[in-house]
Design a protein around this nucleic acid. Structure first.
Lengths: 338, 338
DNA sequence: AATAATAAGTTAAACGTTTAACTAACCGCT
DNA sequence: AGCGGTTAGTTAAACGTTTAACTTATTATT
């Protein structure tokens, strides 16, 4: 059996309360006693029981982490990075993370994740877009909730977001400063706030540099911006518009699809046409040429979310604070000055 | 505050022991009382406290799930599927899953995951190849351990594996039966048991059909079989060997790389050369033509592992039982009869 | 010298379950 | 009437912590 606080107390010749106070390094304990106890703890390799603690503190020490299955299973390791960030920061705050997925078509008749029903979490982190019925259901519970990379009901819930507008501006500005004027935007699922903001950034830069917006340069697919959609968007774009010299894709996946189209149709990258993505998730360098992109600090989103969560839990508060993280321009080989 | 067993007892006019017995549906309770209690539980939306339970049962109700960071962050959603399978099955067994990653170059001076040090798990599932020093460290603890898709110290630990030999045979046989004779194998990290087995399956089929093995048809890269390596392997293969009509790639990622090489060099798939992968992780259909492959039941590996784990935990045993899961041949458009 | 303040610890109750041991009521049998 | 067996519950201890309230010893203040 694992050593308990009693074993430590016996070994150090003090009461169990003293051991507990040392563990929480309470001021009321002398250095001498503290050393004795710490020594015993070390010797026995004692760790407080999570259950016993949870029982008396009336908490679980766990934080739930929810995302939709298709986000989790998506090819690009975007949300997995966010999760790892959270998990890392949870460590620092003595919290455990319980990861689970929900159906991307979650509706009000679906069951909530078990850790919510059983109230086995002290707070919930939700990453990425989730169905509205889910948000509705969890709003009845009163643990703190933090959204990451998505921010519905912004007045009510806290969120960690990325500066998508700035990213859109950065990407577009990079192309404009490289001498491009016929710059297209390709995107999908335009209702998604992040995508919308990236497009807004694109528009801002056009305005800032006195370029005229042109609807035929903006190609938006209905659903999720993946490779196939990127391919299709590029196809339609180049069919009606021969003189494009640069493309800003709303994310890397679509950019890869568009690159495929260009390769298949003899359009040289970046000589005939530059392209820049968003997210920086294309790690596999088999994609040629290396894709310029906007780096999103994925791990950091996770750590920031968990920091916020730990703070809320510790101070027993719920607020709607937002954290906005800056992005970086990463210039690789798919964009070129003309 | 959440309702406790006392609230239920009061509402149903019984003792708390009775409530507990009902919850575990012990035989000693009459149908009448059972109904009363169940009713109260429903009304109050009562769920037993995880902590209180853990305290008295001396367990945590958690299962650890470990993989290396590069496995978790890999582009292909292989291990994520396994995790989801485990998580699902954990649900059925009233267990929670604690996911964490370790460094892929974990060495003996690294710290073990927190849930191990604090003994906050009842068992550990390890997915994919992990560094040996890690295995060495955890061998000191005495919770049950199950390896998934990797099986070191096979006499000691339990494992859930995929029939890689059968898969290799299935893939090769499919090509042979389609009239191919000059069939190449490309792979990487040949020390990995799974890869080695896939190659063995390839060899078996050659033997079975009386084809002569030819070393120049087997191209093996040093390190991890990813896209880049697939591209390189294909390049070397076709440089020394012009008349190949089919390739069996040790996994989908390498196959995609090889396909890229073929496209770049005017080799038509499947007209000039067929190709088949392994794993069935290439979900994005932007890859043209659709890749024939060997489907590995990823979710099922996860569920089987967790079933085994739940069984071991419940019966307080540790054994070295193995579960071997069959694979399926998936014929798409990248392989063709000649 | 008496009193107050501070320091350093201890005692004991509480958290919400589980379960072995006990009780009470009833039944059937001699 | 007395006994054993069965059924359907209840009692109470235990699990390993935390923490408010208490104790005791020492020091400082008047």
């Amino acid at each position: 059996m694992n050593p308990t606080i009693k074993d430590v107390a016996k070994m150090a010749n003090v009461s169990i309360a003293t051991v507990s106070l040392v563990v929480h390094n309470h001021k009321r304990i002398s250095q001498e006693t503290k050393d004795k106890v710490l020594n015993a703890i070390e010797q026995l390799n004692y760790h407080p029981s999570h259950s016993a603690r949870g029982l008396v503190r009336r908490n679980s020490g766990n934080v739930g982490f929810v995302l939709t299955d298709d986000h989790f299973l998506r090819t690009e390791p975007f949300y997995t990075h966010i999760f790892i960030g959270s998990e890392f920061e949870a460590h620092e705050n003595e919290l455990y993370v319980l990861l689970t997925t929900i159906n991307s078509d979650f509706n009000s008749s679906n069951k909530l994740p078990r850790f919510i029903l059983e109230r086995n979490i002290d707070g919930l982190i939700i990453a990425g877009k989730v169905p509205f019925p889910f948000i509705e259901q969890i709003s009845k519970y009163n643990f703190p909730i933090i959204f990451v990379d998505y921010s519905p009901c912004a007045k009510k819930y806290s969120g960690v977001l990325v500066d998508n507008i700035q990213g859109g501006e950065l990407a577009t500005e990079h192309l404009i400063k490289s001498g491009h004027e016929r710059i297209a935007f390709i995107g999908g699922d335009i209702e998604h706030p992040s995508i919308k903001d990236r497009l807004n950034g694109y528009k801002n830069s056009f305005e800032k540099f006195g370029l005229k917006l042109n609807d035929s340069l903006i190609e938006i697919e209905e659903d999720y911006p993946g490779r196939t959609n990127g391919y299709n968007a590029a196809e339609r774009l180049f069919t009606k518009n021969k003189d494009i010299t640069a493309i800003f894709s709303c994310n890397d996946a679509m950019a890869v699809g568009a690159m495929q189209y260009m390769k298949d149709n003899g359009i040289k990258i970046p000589d005939d046409c530059s392209i820049i993505g968003f997210d920086d998730v294309v790690s596999d360098n088999a994609i040629e040429p290396a894709l310029s992109t906007i780096r999103v600090p994925k791990m950091e989103m996770g750590t920031e979310a968990m920091k916020l969560m730990a703070h809320m839990i510790k101070n027993n508060l719920k607020d709607n604070r937002k954290v906005l993280l800056p992005v970086d321009l990463i210039i690789r080989e798919s964009t070129k000055r003309i």
